[in-house]
Write a protein that binds this DNA or RNA. Structure first.
Lengths: 175, 175
DNA sequence: CCCTAATTTCTCTTTTTACTGAAATGTCTG
DNA sequence: CAGACATTTCAGTAAAAAGAGAAATTAGGG
């Protein structure tokens, strides 16, 4: 069952982190760090660090258990909540630095050494990432239930859109 | 300028691959493997492997140059094309295995050892992942220009949707 | 076919990242 | 405020990934 965690490797999180998340998600009750270390057979300190990371992503939370001094942890149960957290993290780790990097590259755009072709590519890239960045942020701000509606509609939103705007353009629109 | 490539580390691609892509994207003309190795100061073999990876992602392509026996390479210039390629790769590397892993976990869903709570979580996760997977695929199949329209609209699609369906539901719709 | 140039494969080294176990720090209880 | 238990930090080790350079393979041109 916990081979679930192996999958996390693909996701830019290390095995321990993924395994712990999976364990907590499929656990009856909140677990202590010690429980986790025992169940997964990994070092206590490793658990500590992985928990910290999961807490930072807000994919798990500490819960107090009456009559027990130790910290107990449980997974975020709401899948939309989870997805949003992951998406936010990814934006921060992947998209934001990209936008910054390209913005930086744009600073010397007027350098005469840069050919027209390259300049044009840089500008296009910049526009592109900025647009995507804005979109991504907007989507993160839309309540899950509405996103769900959008997703359920799938590509039908496209036809709907065409219907509403009254056109069936196939080329990017010339703003 | 080529610190652009450093950014690729975040993206699950190694430095060399990212740098080569950036170099080609910002290059006046197609380059040979040797050119690339020289410009970036990395081993010829490394270039070879990185080019193979970029070719696999279809982010670059071989182009023949008259009177030169060597392979020349140029970057995919269409940003939408690029984004689609990356998105496809990600789906294959991240989403598909996840769907498979959860589907596998679902096989022993009837095991009486599994509590109701856990069972319910598994099912919810499975539904969720399947839905997202389907949606992602559908979006990949929509022509870039139309996606662009969607993205440009941003969260306004949500209001539009609410307007069209005639309701302002805040809860997930009960299919 | 053979010779040469180009590319790829393979093995070994370097670098990076993950993990462990011990030591240090923190925290609750009497 | 001491003593026990819990957690975190840290330094060293182990594992994984990236890269270099030599050797092997492939593909033109005579």
């Amino acid at each position: 069952m916990l081979r679930w965690g192996d999958m996390g490797t693909q996701w830019g999180v290390n095995r321990s982190v993924a395994q712990i998340q999976a364990l907590l998600f499929l656990s009856e009750r909140p677990l202590t760090a010690e429980d986790i270390a025992a169940k997964l057979g990994i070092a206590r300190s490793n658990v500590s660090n992985s928990l910290k990371e999961l807490l930072a992503w807000k994919l798990i939370q500490r819960v107090p258990v009456l009559g027990d001094r130790r910290d107990h942890y449980e997974a975020e149960a709401d899948l939309w909540q989870m997805a949003t957290k992951v998406a936010q993290g990814r934006k921060a780790r992947e998209i934001d630095p990209m936008v910054a990097a390209i913005a930086a590259a744009m600073e010397n755009i007027d350098d005469p050494q840069i050919s027209a072709k390259v300049r044009q590519r840089l500008v296009a890239m910049h526009d592109f990432v900025s647009t995507v960045d804005r979109w991504y942020q907007q989507m993160l701000d839309v309540p899950p239930a509405q996103i769900m509606t959008l997703i359920r509609m799938g590509s039908r939103v496209v036809s709907l859109l065409r219907f509403v705007t009254g056109k069936g353009r196939d080329k990017a629109d010339p703003d």
